[in-house]
């Protein structure tokens, strides 16, 4: 219980969950765990089971794409106060990129199976979560488009 209170507090302080009501926060905290990952260590690899999503408390995670025969391509980096990993919401629930810590990074992970179970029995929780995820996804999509058009390229 003490652990969940601690995690609940950490979650409530994270920008992603800002403004969520206490009861919902406590339900979500029941699926949360603290994680720490050392620099240059992979948290997960493309194709693995997407059984969690992550909130960054401190540090930096690089989201990479592996291209055979080449160095990995860093698609973007994720920093303090941000989240990553939405494959847990989309079947077949497998990671579509690698995630590597650039420096010592502290995260809160949320267990996907646990969350999906809670959402099944409380659709309003699912709605709240989705309405937090969608703006993040829209931002990432816009950012990816801007990166793709090579806006600093020769006119």
């Amino acid at each position: 219980m003490v652990q969940i209170d601690g995690l609940g507090k950490l979650l409530a302080e994270h920008p992603f969950f800002r403004g969520m009501d206490d009861a919902a926060m406590e339900v979500i905290a029941g699926c949360a765990a603290n994680e720490r990952i050392n620099a240059d260590t992979y948290l997960f690899r493309e194709g693995g089971a997407a059984d969690k999503f992550y909130l960054v408390r401190h540090g930096t995670i690089a989201l990479e794409f592996h291209v055979p025969g080449r160095d990995p391509v860093v698609l973007s980096t994720v920093h303090e106060g941000e989240i990553f990993g939405w494959s847990w919401m989309v079947p077949p629930f497998t990671w579509t990129f690698d995630a590597k810590a650039i420096e010592l990074t502290r995260l809160v992970s949320l267990d996907a199976k646990c969350l999906r179970g809670k959402i099944e029995s409380d659709h309003s929780l699912g709605y709240d979560l989705l309405s937090r995820f969608i703006p993040v996804l829209a931002d990432r999509l816009n950012a990816a488009r801007l990166q793709m058009i090579d806006m600093y390229g020769r006119p």
Partner: peptide, 12 residues
């Protein structure tokens, strides 16, 4: 926009 070499700063 694209991290190359030993760049360890933000990408995006």
């Amino acid at each position: 926009d694209r991290g190359t070499g030993d760049w360890a700063g933000p990408v995006g």
